[in-house]
């Protein structure tokens, strides 16, 4: 094997490989260069941001939240992929309460919807006691054209219009359907800090 190829014989012509031609000459040149550079200072550039992170950057920049919603970044300014949103409904059964949601965004966002959990224990037909949220755009109806703003408005909407037709908390849904007055009393009791049935709800007003 001839290890002393003269690099000038391996003239690079722009576009060559890109037209589907052989790249082997190019690999030869690179292999030579690499051997030469092996002992030189080989500081690696760091990884790129994931495409999901970039798209999320845009989503966060264009957030247009209602006054009653605030967003915080518990891990500081450089971790946008994990954040919290607090919602203070200014209308409806949940007026006066503050509800905290955690968002976990995947590197392939927006191909995949963020994972959203409610951190505040709440008596709500569409949110269970573990914080799972039944909101269509978080699961079956998620589309990459939707964004973080859409989700926050969707969550906000759950508080102004709780919906007994998509129950996650079966009991709360049944009460809302059959007796909205009692439902209202239960919500107030839970938000003030107290028991509804067997379940204790910490104060969130």
């Amino acid at each position: 094997m001839d290890h002393n190829l003269n690099p000038t014989e391996l003239v690079l012509r722009p576009q060559r490989a890109l037209d589907g031609e052989d790249m082997i000459r190019l690999f030869k040149v690179k292999e030579k260069q690499r051997e030469l550079a092996e002992n030189a200072n080989g500081g690696a550039p760091v990884k790129k941001q994931s495409a999901g992170e970039l798209r999320l950057h845009k989503d966060i920049c264009e957030l247009n939240l209602p006054k009653s919603c605030t967003i915080t970044f518990p891990n500081g300014k450089d971790d946008l992929m994990n954040f919290e949103v607090s919602i203070r409904p200014d209308d409806g059964y949940y007026l006066g309460g503050t509800f905290l949601f955690s968002f976990q965004v995947s590197p392939i966002y927006p191909h995949e919807a963020p994972k959203v959990k409610c951190k505040t224990k709440v008596y709500h037909p569409n949110i269970d006691l573990e914080g799972n949220v039944c909101l269509n755009i978080l699961r079956e109806d998620w589309k990459p054209v939707l964004n973080i703003n859409t989700i926050i408005y969707g969550l906000y909407h759950l508080f102004t219009e709780p919906n007994y037709e998509d129950p996650l908390n079966h009991d709360a849904a049944a009460v809302l359907r059959d007796n909205p007055k009692i439902f209202e009393t239960n919500v107030r009791r839970a938000m003030a800090g107290g028991y509804v049935g067997q379940n204790f709800f910490p104060r969130c007003m």
Binding site: E112, D128, C134, N136, R139, W142, D166, L168
Partner: peptide, 11 residues
């Protein structure tokens, strides 16, 4: 997209 069932259907 991955198939995701509505949580309320599951529940």
């Amino acid at each position: 997209p991955q198939v995701k069932f509505p949580l309320c259907t599951l529940a």
